[in-house]
């Protein structure tokens, strides 16, 4: 899986989230997902990450965990934006 493949998975999950939001957010590789500038609330972030986890696992044909202690203990949070999340997914796939 390339980083762009992973990025597309994340962006698709955000587009699906947008369908449920009263006020859709701008979706792009640098959309802030976590932290002070986050454009989505915490429950939405959880929903997106779980969605991404499922699709990435299916694409790779093996379980991918984005919500375990390894993920949250990364020096740079994988949840900062779609691009950093895609990078983390790619590292798990390697």
């Amino acid at each position: 899986m390339t980083k762009d493949d992973a990025l597309q998975i994340v962006l698709r999950a955000l587009e699906r989230l947008n369908e449920e939001l009263d006020e859709p957010v701008d979706v792009g590789p640098r959309t802030p997902l976590f932290g002070a500038d986050a454009v989505i609330d915490s429950l939405s972030l959880v929903s997106v990450i779980v969605d991404v986890e499922a699709e990435a696992s299916e694409a790779l044909g093996k379980p991918v965990s984005l919500t375990d202690d390894r993920a949250i203990n990364q020096p740079t949070s994988p949840f900062t934006d779609p691009e950093t999340l895609a990078g983390y997914i790619t590292s798990l796939a390697a």
Binding site: S42, L45, V46, I49, D68, D69, I72, F79
Partner: peptide
């Protein structure tokens, strides 16, 4: 149970 710390993190 294994995602608890992730949930705690996003709940700040």
């Amino acid at each position: 149970a294994r995602t608890n710390n992730f949930i705690l993190m996003v709940m700040k």
